[in-house]
């Protein structure tokens, strides 16, 4: 089921939670809505589900305008952040709920519901636990019951709100892989909300990076990491450092009035972004340099923290240095970015 979000705006008590958001989700895609809290990602998910109404704009399911359809009519599978399992019902009854409440004309007979519940329990690898109550299940098991319950109504799309947020790190990793396999097997169009970039980048076909009620960038994991479209995306995804620079006529990039050995086309003030691993140490004078304030080992690499003086104040940057390079605390280190992005006219984040 294709989902098209067309210039959607949502206000809560005059406070805009979403501002002119448009997005196309292709059938069978696994999409992550990624952003810090307050970025509007959960609001967008609830609008797709029909749990909230957009103030303006439309949401299409395929060709059909679903904007004014109720949540029941939209037939979406929604997995809530804290699962919202019915605590007075067993896991089996929870999963069968969506079938039990159907109008008599399209309600499957009891035996059929039981069979379907059994199938779904198999699918989420919880066979034999249908008699358990939610408080007798572990977090990961509850999560899978919630997923099976959402799948029972044969939803047109599957929506998950922070699906792994409430789980510990190990279970989270397992379930992440499991959800990817589950998606590949069932082929459902799936949208999930997360604030964990690792989760989004690893799991999703496409990542929608959101900030302050707007979509900053939509793209694959490679796109948003290697080709960030805005200063926000560059600083939000992965590690990065930023310095205010100026591009002189002729293309030399100047920091603190001095060339630093890299060139760009567009003249004027700009913000230079680079990642810790995209630098090379150098002896040349036209390079960035600063005092090493700390140095720490990080798995297979070493990270040096450097203060770069700029007039009265210092800019703090982190770069990766080879394990065999001589780095002395308090001494100057010279380096040049090997890959970088300039955002013209933008201010530091």
């Amino acid at each position: 089921m294709d989902v098209t979000i067309n210039h959607v705006r949502k206000e809560f008590a005059r406070f805009p939670a979403l501002n002119d958001v448009s997005l196309e989700i292709k059938s069978g895609e696994l999409i992550a809505l990624l952003g810090p809290s307050g970025s509007g990602k959960t609001t967008l998910l609830r609008l797709i589900a029909g749990l909230d109404q957009p103030t303006e704009g439309q949401i299409f399911f395929g060709e059909e305008d679903a904007s004014h359809r109720t949540v029941q009519e939209r037939n979406v599978g929604f997995v809530f952040q804290h699962y919202a399992l019915f605590r007075h019902m067993t896991a089996g009854d929870n999963i069968g709920f969506g079938l039990k409440v159907r109008p008599a004309a399209i309600r499957p007979p009891k035996a059929e519901i039981r069979r379907r519940v059994g199938e779904l329990l198999d699918m989420v690898q919880l066979s034999g636990l249908e008699k358990r109550y939610p408080n007798q299940l572990s977090g990961g098991q509850r999560q899978r019951v919630a997923l099976a319950r959402a799948m029972a109504i044969e939803p047109r799309i599957l929506l998950l709100d922070e699906p792994f947020g409430a789980l510990d790190a190990k279970v989270r990793k397992e379930l992440r892989r499991w959800l990817r396999e589950f998606h590949d097997r069932t082929g459902h169009t799936t949208v999930f909300v997360t604030h964990d970039q690792e989760e989004a980048l690893e799991l999703a076909d496409r990542v929608v990076v959101m900030s302050q009620g707007k979509i900053e960038q939509v793209g694959s994991a490679d796109d948003v990491y290697d080709r960030p479209g805005s200063p926000f995306v560059f600083s939000f995804i992965g590690e990065s450092s930023q310095l205010p620079v100026r591009v002189a006529p002729g293309g030399n990039v100047l920091f603190n009035g001095r060339p630093i050995g890299i060139a760009e086309r567009q003249e004027g003030d700009a913000m230079l972004f680079f990642r810790p691993q995209d630098v090379a140490l150098t002896q040349e004078t036209d390079a960035l340099f600063g005092k090493v304030t700390a140095c720490r080992r990080l798995a297979g690499t070493r990270i040096a923290e450097i203060d770069i003086a700029n007039g009265g104040k210092a800019h703090h940057v982190e770069i990766e240095v080879p394990l065999d390079a001589a780095v002395t605390l308090g001494a100057d280190l010279r380096f040049r970015p090997t890959r970088w992005t300039l955002f013209a006219g933008s201010k530091a984040e």
Binding site: N75, F80, A84, F97, G98, R102, R149, A150
Partner: peptide, 25 residues
């Protein structure tokens, strides 16, 4: 309202939501 929203998203009517979810809670 989490449980109610879950019931509605599963297709339950307002009355079914009250009867099967809110009241037992």
């Amino acid at each position: 309202t989490g449980d109610e929203e879950a019931a509605l998203s599963l297709g339950a009517s307002g009355w079914q939501t009250f009867w099967f979810v809110t009241l037992p809670n």
